[in-house]
Design a protein around this nucleic acid. Structure first.
Length: 579
RNA sequence: CGGGGAGUGGCGCAGUUUGGCAGCGCGCAUGGUUUGGGACCAUGAAGUCGCAGGUUCAAAUCCUGUCUCCCCGACCA
């Protein structure tokens, strides 16, 4: 490839719209160009890198029994109506009518289409497990695209689906996919952590995310540096240390009303009464659709709305407005579930039913001592709705948790029978009995991974592509306008290309500074410089993008040297070496 | 959807406060001089100032509406 003929160009200044390194560098390098918010063109260099990532994905998917197919981007609405997602999903799904007025959707994902295929082609347990994948465009009309390729509306995803006879089959297969995901990221030079994830709109029982840790990420994670516990904010929990008191509710004195004038916060009340916040009960009221829900949790803890919504099996809840509280006759600062009527109560499992807590008296200026969950108020839901915070004890080992940000590159879900049951995707087992297929689904964003490659591999001058995904391995700078340099560089370019090396020849009529700066910005791993000076020194100058120093290599030894470097770099990123 | 900011040649920006010839740098084209870390000289092309309406002798500038884009939040590969 000759730079003089490159479709696209580098920019000296970074476009105002970009803030992240990956976004800035890919725009400046002419790798991507924006069409609309969250919709990008992949220019030739970026597309070459993307295709290399795809090949890595294919290699790893094939290695765990995946078969590649291709499903369409436009689906008939009926498929999505069968699973209920036509109704359940909001405006992020693009809907349209075809010319005959049939409702159609743009694919946000492909569970429906693959399950439709599965019910038509999988008849018997003898065909299981079955694993298929494809690399295809998705469209999600996100409320807010941002950060270049990291959060877009149109994106290419590698998504895989597995079908099993039973949960055990899925459980057995699932780790293969997790390992493959780590191998793919490693091969692309992107370190990832596997974290517990929320099932979200997919449904199912169990999920993991594969996340690249960076302050620019929009996913919030809780990590335990001690034991490796890792979960995203929607799933993370903490050690609550609720030791049994050995008391039964009858042993605990009845609630006692105490005056707490003006003490309308946990901190104020516990200080006033000389108690630990852990001995108090915090009451929060949320709006679930039109109805109110009260959540009670130990005084020192906070509520995670997403976990609350999941416990209630609804899409979302929001903190009630002061007017709502007033209408319900609740005194903010003095609320409690005691004597509450017509409002469901969620009790976090940080509160135990064998001890008394300080709670509000539902009367301004008063609290109750010795309030026992279950005895003094009815519990409608009990579960874990705690919001894990920086420094909270790890649920596994008790050491303080760290909060980090990250970019979710891929995720894996144990779907179970969520889709097969609603779409009637059954197989016959050994006894000839029809059973729903047990499914897993596994997504990974191609553009997002590409952006993370840049995030994880750049310096202030530009991108430093790992050999495995570099658009080209070698950037050959022809320096100077002399015929000797022109002829020699042209000959070298042809020679290397004909031997299968991936080479960009910078044959532009530009100054040395421009060429070197573009070489650094574009980030091919090996830079060769051919000039009068290098020829006089005995050959071409060879410099790795990732290193400072350079050396001169004789033209006669060049191929051997390049092969050696490329091989060792490829090995450095080989997942077999590590995972 | 809530909060903040911005739309002026391809890119980065000034000009808007106080209405009066639409500018600068980079890039692009042509010619010449240069060639080891973003060269220099000369000449040139390119903008309905996001869009619509209004005020005015006159609007990039003032008013109204609208669209788009960016950042923070809610939400996701």
């Amino acid at each position: 490839m000759r730079m003089s003929m490159r479709f696209g160009k580098t920019l000296r200044e970074s476009p105002a719209e970009a803030e992240l390194p990956s976004h800035i560098l890919m725009l400046r390098g002419g790798y991507i160009s924006k069409v609309a918010a969250g919709i990008y063109n992949y220019m030739p260099f970026a597309w070459r890198a993307a295709r290399k990532i795809e090949e890595i994905m294919r290699r790893e998917m094939d290695a765990i029994g995946g078969q590649e197919l291709l499903m369409p981007v436009v689906h008939p609405a009926e498929l999505w109506q069968e699973t209920g997602r036509w109704q359940a999903i909001g405006p992020e799904m693009v809907r349209m009518k075809d010319r005959s007025g049939r409702d159609m959707v743009l694919a946000m994902t492909h569970e429906e289409t693959i399950t439709d295929l599965a019910r038509r082609y999988i008849d018997s347990y003898k065909q299981l497990p079955a694993v298929v994948y494809h690399i295809q465009t998705k469209f999600r009309d996100e409320p807010r695209s941002r950060a270049g390729l990291i959060r877009v509306r149109e994106f290419i995803m590698k998504d895989a689906y597995s079908f099993h006879a039973d949960q055990e089959g899925l459980d057995e297969y699932y780790p293969n996919m997790c390992r493959a995901y780590k191998r793919i990221c490693h091969a692309c030079g992107v370190p990832v952590v596997q974290v517990l994830g929320d099932v979200g709109m997919m449904g199912g029982t169990n999920a993991h995310e594969f996340t690249y840790i960076t302050d620019y990420g929009e996913d919030t994670l809780l990590l335990c540096p001690e034991c490796g516990y890792a979960a995203n904010r929607e799933t993370a929990t903490i050690k609550k240390d609720v030791a049994a008191s050995g008391l039964s509710p009858e042993d605990i004195p009845a609630p006692e009303k105490v005056a707490t004038p003006g003490k309308d916060s946990i901190a104020a009340v516990s200080e006033f009464l000389g108690m630990d916040p852990k001995e108090t009960m915090k009451s929060m009221v949320y709006l679930n659709g039109d109805s109110l829900v009260m959540v009670v949790i130990r005084g020192d803890l906070d509520v995670n709305e997403k976990k609350l919504a999941n416990l209630l099996r609804v899409g979302e809840v929001r903190l009630a407005y002061p007017e709502d509280l007033e209408k319900a006759g609740l005194n903010q600062g003095y609320m409690s579930p005691v004597g509450l009527k017509g409002i469901k109560v969620v009790c976090d499992d940080s509160l135990s039913a064998d001890r008394g807590y300080v709670a509000g008296a539902n009367e301004a200026g008063f609290h109750l001592k010795n309030v026992v969950p279950g005895r003094d108020f009815a519990v409608d839901y009990r579960g874990d709705v705690v919001a894990a915070r920086q420094g909270d004890p790890c649920p596994v080992c008790g050491k303080p948790l760290d909060v980090k940000r990250g970019v979710e590159i891929g995720n894996t879900f144990k779907l179970g029978t969520r889709y097969s049951a609603s779409m009637g995707a059954n197989y016959l087992d050994e006894n000839g009995k029809a059973k729903p297929l047990v499914m897993g689904c596994y997504g990974m964003g191609l553009g997002r991974l590409l952006a993370c490659v840049v995030e994880a591999n750049h310096d202030e001058r530009g991108i430093i592509w790992p050999m495995t995904v570099a658009p080209y391995h070698i950037y050959l700078v022809a320096l100077g306008a002399s015929d000797t340099v022109k002829n020699e560089s042209e000959a070298l370019y042809r020679r290397l290309t004909s031997k299968g090396f991936e080479v960009v020849l910078d044959d532009r009529d530009e100054s040395a500074g421009v060429k070197f700066n573009d070489a650094d910005l574009l980030g091919m791993p090996i830079r060769l410089t051919l000039s009068e000076r290098s020829l006089k020194a005995g050959g071409v100058e060879l410099k790795m993008r990732s290193e400072k120093s350079s050396r001169v290599v004789a033209l006669s030894e060049l191929e051997g040297e390049l092969s050696k470097i490329i091989d060792s770099e490829m090995r450095r990123f080989s997942p077999d070496e590590v995972i």
